[in-house]
Amino acid sequence: MRRQLRPTDVKRLNRTWRRNTGNRLGMILESVTGPFNVGSIFRSAAAFGVDEIWLAGNATPPTNPKAGKTALGTERLVTWHEPVPATEAVKAAREAGYTVLAIELTAEAAPLHRADLARDVCLVVGSEDHGCSPALLDAVDGACYIPQVGRVGSFNVAVAAAIALAEARRQEWQNLADS
C-alpha cells in the first residue's frame, strides 16, 4: 500500500538530491508586479535551490505582504537583490558567473528541453503583460521557450518560472543513477 513519506523521510530524500546537485541557478524577475506571482516564484526558487534572484524594473519585492502569503517564508532562503534596471541585473548575473537565458517567445528562441541548462544558468522571466523588455532581450546570452500544444498562448509567469527551474534541474540530474 502506498503512503506519503513522513517529514524525516522527506528530509532524507531531499538531502540525497542536494548532494547530487552542483550547478548554480539564478533568476531575474523583470517587472513581475503581481505579488502572488512573486511569492510563488520565490517558493519554487527555494524548492529548486536557486542561489540568487535579481529583481529588475518595477518588480514587486518579496517583502510585500501579499507576496509573503504565497512565499510562506521561503524568501528568507534565497538571496535577492533590490530592483535595478534590467540590463544591470543581467550584468550582475554574468559577473557572478551565470549564463543568462530569457524564458521568452522570440524568433530565435530554442525549445526549453533543447536549451543547455545543465550548467550555472540564470533564468529570466518578464512582466505578466509584456514579457521581457527589448533591452533585456538584447542583453541576455540567449532565449528559450516552453513548447505548448493547447489553445492558450502563454503560461502564467510563476508557472513558466517553475517549469524552467524544473527543466534545469532535470537536465542536471538526467544521467544520475535512480535515487
Rank of each mutant, 00 (worst) to 15 (best):
M27I: 03
M27Y: 06
M27D: 02
I28F: 07
L29T: 07
L29E: 04
L29Q: 06
S31R: 08
V32N: 03
V32T: 00
V32S: 05
V32A: 06
T33I: 09
G34P: 00
G34V: 10
P35F: 10
P35C: 11
G39H: 13
G39T: 12
G39K: 13
I41A: 03
F42G: 09
R43P: 02
S44G: 10
S44P: 01
S44A: 15
A46G: 14
A46P: 10
A46N: 06
A47Y: 07
G49V: 06
G49N: 12
V50E: 06
V50M: 07
E52W: 14
E52K: 14
W54L: 06
L55Q: 08
A56Y: 03
A56R: 05
A59N: 09
A59R: 04
A59L: 07
P61K: 08
P61C: 03
P61M: 04
P62Q: 12
T63G: 14
T63D: 14
T63S: 15
N64M: 09
N64D: 15
N64T: 09
N64Y: 10
P65T: 13
P65D: 13
K66T: 13
A67V: 09
G68Q: 15
G68N: 10
T70W: 05
T70D: 11
T70N: 11
A71M: 02
A71R: 06
A71I: 02
L72M: 14
L72E: 07
L72W: 00
G73K: 02
T74N: 05
E75V: 02
R76W: 02
L77D: 15
L77P: 01
V78Q: 08
V78P: 03
T79H: 14
T79W: 05
W80P: 11
H81W: 13
E82R: 12
E82P: 13
P83Y: 13
P83C: 13
P83E: 11
P83Q: 09
P85S: 03
A86D: 12
T87E: 15
T87V: 15
E88C: 00
E88R: 06
E88V: 00
V90I: 08
K91V: 00
K91H: 09
A92Y: 11
A92C: 03
A93C: 08
R94W: 03
E95Q: 14
E95M: 07
E95H: 08
A96M: 00
A96C: 00
G97L: 11
T99K: 05
T99A: 07
T99P: 00
V100R: 06
V100N: 07
V100K: 09
L101E: 01
A102F: 13
A102M: 11
A102K: 11
I103Q: 07
E104H: 09
E104F: 08
E104M: 10
T106D: 09
T106F: 11
T106M: 12
T106L: 07
T106R: 13
